[in-house]
C-alpha cells in the first residue's frame, strides 16, 4: 500500500525501492506492477529477510 501511495506522487521514469518484511509483498507487488503497467526492475531479499523491490514508474 505504501508503494501504491508513493507511486502516485512519483514522476514517470522514477524508480522506487520498497522495503518489506511481508512475504506477501514479494508475490503481490510484481502482480500489481504488471496489472497497472509499471516496470518491475528487480527483487532482492537481504540477510535480515527483508525484501527490496525496485519498481519503475512507466506511465
Amino acid at each position: 500500500m505504501e508503494l501504491i501511495t508513493a507511486m502516485k506522487r512519483a514522476a514517470v521514469g522514477d524508480t522506487l525501492e520498497l522495503l518489506s518484511s511481508d512475504q506477501g509483498s514479494a508475490k503481490d507487488v510484481p502482480e500489481w506492477v504488471r496489472k497497472v503497467g509499471h516496470e518491475m526492475e528487480r527483487t532482492e531479499q537481504d540477510d535480515a529477510k527483508v525484501w527490496h523491490l525496485f519498481v519503475k514508474k512507466a506511465k
Binding site: 500500500m1 501504491i4 511481508d22 506477501g24 500489481w32
Partner: peptide, 10 residues
Amino acid sequence: YPIGRLHSLE
C-alpha cells in the same frame, strides 16, 4: 481493495 488481498494485514 487496493492490494492483492482483502486487507493490508495478512
